[in-house]
Structures are given as C-alpha cells and as structure tokens.
Design a protein around this nucleic acid. Structure first.
Lengths: 112, 112
DNA sequence: AATCGTTATATTTGCAAAAACATAACGCAT
DNA sequence: ATGCGTTATGTTTTTGCAAATATAACGATT
C-alpha cells in the first residue's frame, strides 16, 4: 500500500482566478472546437459555467486570452490569442514540474 | 496588479485521504485541546465532520495517528501519537517547500 | 426582414453535500 | 446505579451550488 500525493494549483489576480486546471481544460477545448458552446459540450459542463470561467480568465488577464465574436458567419465563435496559447503551455509546464517536485517530497512521509 | 499562485496538496492511500490541509488543522487542534469534540468546536466544524476526517486519517495511516478513549475520567479524549506528530510536521514542511517552489515558477507566467 | 448558431445573461429548478439533531455506548467517579 | 463528558453513529433538515431553462443580442448571409 503506497501513498500518492496530489495537488491542485491555480493563479489568482485581484479577486478573480486567472487560471486553474478547469480553466485550462476549457481553453484547450476552445482551441480545439473554435467555439465556447462546443467547448462546453465537449467538457460536459453547462454553457453558463463555461462562459463564467472564460469571463473570469479574460477579466484577470493582462492581455486578451480569447477573441469572442457574436453573430456573423456561423453565429460567431471564440479563438485563443497567441497570449492565451502561451498561457496554457506555461501553466501545464508548471503543473508537471510541481507533480515531479511533490513525488520526490512524498518520500519524506514514507520514511517516517 | 501582480498574480498569486496558490496550491492545495493532499496525500491519498487506497480510496481514503491520509492527509490534507483540513485534516492537519484538525490534528493540530486535537493536540492543542486533548479531545476531538473540543477540536471540532475550535475549528467551527461539526463533531461528526471532525470524526469522519479523523477516521479517514487513521484508516489510511500505516500506524495509529491518534489514540482515542471513550468514557473514564473526563469522558474520554484523543491524543496524537508520536507518529501523528511527525506526520503533521513533515506535511507542513512539504507544503511550505511547495509554496516556495511555485512562487518561483510563477515568474514564467509574468514574463510571457 | 428572416434565419442561423453563436455569445451573453437572468431566472428557476434540482440535488448532493453539509449542517443540525438525535441517540447509543463507554468507563470512571461519586 | 446515576451522572458526566466524551467517542461513535444514524437520521433528518437545510442550504448553497450546479444544472436546467429561458431569452435577448448580435451580425453575416440569404
């Protein structure tokens, strides 16, 4: 019987959450589908929840993370900016580094 | 406007949670008060919730984390074992190390 | 001007987790 | 044997959050 150490990390700015695992999943789904509503469906969350998550991301980011368009060809859509793409890459990297770090630290518990 | 990176870590064994921040708080309160019911009151959680948390800790630990006694002088009580005291010390240390690690990683986000 | 599939929001409903409440069991003390 | 304060559970009630539902607004296309 061995232990597993788990973690959740997130980045906050004044009162809002910029990024967390759920928001990164959503951004990736937007990148894959080209729309917020399709991204919500693919993640099995309500459109409203997805919109709220994306809203908090864009509100707290220094530059736009997505470009959302209403109406027009196909009804509109959402697309990641280059800044948004960089954010999810770096967040994933930090997350992976954190896991590696914690896996090593866990040995201290097992050695008590 | 600068960002803050936050984290929660926890340690799981087969299906149960051994330690997390809430459980560590509870163990510290037990150490301070000498009883589970007083610890629950000091943390403003119900006795039942506290008992469930402590139960999952003791179920997943390799050695007893607390010694609980029912009845007797003062009605009973709960006390940390040496193993339990070591666990919370090491958990806190891992947590602090993780924060330091993440604070450094956050610079990558701010430099995008 | 009517249609379409979006984004953007408000409002209502449902449900699961938490809290509250209740009770049993225990062993020492008196 | 009764009372005390605790641990240990079951049962009921509450409530806060998530899901569902509804609807407005939008702009290219026809």
């Amino acid at each position: 019987m061995s232990y597993k150490i788990k973690s959740r990390i997130w980045i906050e700015s004044d009162e809002n959450v910029l990024l967390g695992e759920g928001r990164v999943h959503l951004l990736k789904a937007i990148e894959a589908t080209g729309s917020l509503s399709k991204a919500a469906k693919s993640l099995n969350i309500s459109y409203k929840k997805a919109w709220q998550l994306l809203d908090s991301v864009n509100k707290s980011a220094k530059k736009p993370v997505t470009i959302n368009s209403i109406g027009g060809k196909g009804g509109g859509g959402a697309a990641l900016t280059d800044y948004g793409k960089s954010l999810i890459l770096v967040f994933d990297e930090i997350n992976r580094n954190c896991w590696k770090f914690l896996d090593n630290e866990l040995k201290r518990i097992e050695n008590i």
